[in-house]
């Protein structure tokens, strides 16, 4: 094959990569909806598989070890959605943690989760004296929902 064609082809490949990496593509896909976004969908958001992300509202966790029944509220600071899930939560799950739940938003206004994941931030630091471990998750959720 002629050298000119190879160089031209390579240039097109590089251009496509640049478009994929830096283009506007990423903005069109949301990894998960925040409670505010989910509630804004109204009835369109009910009964379809979605992912919901946010912070576990401190003090909202109700865990029944006998029936493996877990209820908590996911919040993004503006709106909140109650979540119902069964099965033991991950070890790192606790008040104030970042979570992503998969499932469907029911008509009763409760999100029925089929999957529960704890979202750790990329921050690693020992706790400062007097600082609650979950403080930094507030900034994480704010970043994700922008």
């Amino acid at each position: 094959m002629k050298r000119g064609w190879i160089i031209g082809g390579a240039a097109v490949i590089v251009a496509v990569f640049a478009w994929l990496l830096f283009g506007g593509l990423q903005k069109n896909v949301v990894f998960f909806l925040t409670p505010k976004e989910l509630l804004a969908k109204g009835t369109d958001g009910v009964g379809v598989p979605v992912r919901l992300g946010g912070q576990v509202k401190p003090g909202s966790v109700k865990w029944n070890a006998q029936t493996l029944d877990l209820r908590f509220i996911v919040t993004d600071g503006a709106r909140e959605v109650p979540v119902h899930s069964t099965g033991a939560p991950p070890q790192m799950f606790r008040d104030g943690m970042g979570v992503v739940v998969e499932g469907r938003f029911g008509t009763a206004g409760v999100f029925e989760a089929t999957g529960l994941m704890v979202k750790h931030s990329n921050e690693y630091r020992p706790p400062k004296p007097g600082e609650e471990a979950h403080e930094k998750y507030k900034t994480l959720i704010q970043q994700s929902s922008q």
Partner: peptide
């Protein structure tokens, strides 16, 4: 219902993928 509005982005990814590997 495409609630998460993802179809468009995935179609563009497919186009990009086909183009890169065709070349």
């Amino acid at each position: 219902a495409d609630v998460m509005h993802e179809a468009g982005a995935w179609i563009r990814l497919l186009v990009a993928y086909d183009l890169v590997f065709l070349i």
